[in-house]
Design a protein around this nucleic acid. Structure first.
Lengths: 235, 235
DNA sequence: CGGGCGAGGATTGTATAAACTTTCGCCTGT
DNA sequence: ACAGGCGAAAGTTTATACAATCCTCGCCCG
């Protein structure tokens, strides 16, 4: 067989131009700067990043596969607008997966990882204090991703990345009050349980954290009559 | 994924040329006609399907995101070669997700769905009888996908599609004996439990089914010295 | 005779141009 | 005045051409 000059699974994406576009758009969506339904024109994005439409298209297709962008044939790409049904599915999946992830994080975590988590908590607190809502939203999601990275399970990590991205859109669309997106206190409690290597407590706290987030949502079926109509006609 | 604003609920890819390529290659991989490590040249595939490289490239990128194809920069696309570590992660994820899926399938299933499952069992038996190994492998995976579709959870369905595709490669690489890929008897038992709406039995049977599949694998760290060497040098 | 080196060929990455689809304004006919 | 339809413009999809990169193989040097 061929001798392989094998690269590591994937150097994240150092200077890859497609990745820069993807992450730029992702960040904009996760920070709620791009709202659901917004059109993502290829020329428009290409001009911003100084890239050709070929590269933009590649990035948009990846985002579509992650579920935060919808591509409609011959019409273009739009920021996804998850339905309440999608929202329920996403949170159910998170309730299933994330407790398992914290379990593994406790098994696989090193002191360095705990430092990393503490540092992240500090960033979250600072953003909250600053009143920087955009950073808060982004960091809330990143906390969960960090725990998944700590677990070392690449499959779960991939799944959770998708779920987190969609959750961000869901929270934006369906949140009731103006409460912070994701209580920092909860995160701190989870980290404490991880530090004590108390799996049962960690699982329980993660679960109740997710339940609280979902409880703050208002998932009545269609947001407006317009959508109801579309559903009826589609059926 | 989610319900689209405009399109029919189900017009996934009937006459879409990219989808035809993707499904053709996917079928070839799942039926073990394309072996791990096989190079998937863009021109080669383009000639076969009478398509331009643009479309082939799009299809390959989708397959890469599903984890059954690896794209190495400036080198091309290859059928993925999951490591034993990947295999453990995939089956752990399946053990977590699939019992939950059968639960929901029991809740959401209609008599029509049960008919569909029975019909599928018949196809599996027939392929087995015919000694058609390729069809057997494909149908074994499709059974699990069918249950996921029955559950109506699009998120779980998407995740499971990935897991099934990877499982097919894993079984090909690491199976010990020449036992059939996925016992039809197990599948029949699962369908019977679904028919009786006995969630506990269905979950248990699904779990033991997955455990038996994994037990038939030989997941010693590197398959050969060659791989061991590659890993050492990569680190 | 073994190993480094460079030219040639092949393959992928990117950009650009042609073809088709949808959209929206405007106009005509009733 | 308003419904319906035609046509131009904008944008996406597909194909093709060009540039960059990597692999192979033969040659030359030690």
């Amino acid at each position: 067989m061929a001798a392989k000059t094998r690269q590591k699974p994937d150097a994240p994406d150092a200077s890859d131009r497609v990745s820069r576009i993807r992450e730029g758009v992702t960040a904009a969506i996760l920070e709620h700067r791009l709202l659901p339904g917004t059109k993502l024109g290829e020329d428009e994005i290409g001009d911003i990043y100084g890239a050709s439409r070929t590269l933009v298209r590649t990035a948009l297709q990846q985002l579509a596969h992650e579920g935060i962008v919808n591509i409609e044939k011959n019409r273009g790409a739009f920021v996804a607008r998850p339905t309440p049904g999608d929202a329920r599915e996403v949170f159910e999946a998170r309730r299933l997966i994330e407790p398992t992830i914290v379990d593994h994080a406790i098994d696989a975590g090193s002191p360095a990882w705990l430092d990393r988590l503490e540092q992240h908590l500090a960033e979250e607190r600072e953003a909250e204090l600053r009143g920087d809502a955009r950073a808060s939203v982004r960091l809330s999601g990143e906390f969960h991703r960090l725990v998944a990275e700590m677990s070392g399970h690449s499959i779960y990590l991939g799944f959770l990345k998708e779920l987190i991205a969609r959750s961000s859109l869901i929270i934006l669309l369906y949140r009731r009050h103006d409460t912070p997106a994701c209580g920092t206190d909860h995160h701190a409690g989870i980290v404490a349980a991880i530090r004590k290597r108390d799996k049962q407590a960690a699982r329980a706290q993660m679960l109740s954290h997710l339940n609280e987030i979902e409880a703050e949502l208002f998932l009545k079926d269609p947001a407006a009559d317009e959508l109801r109509l579309a559903d009826v006609l589609g059926a």
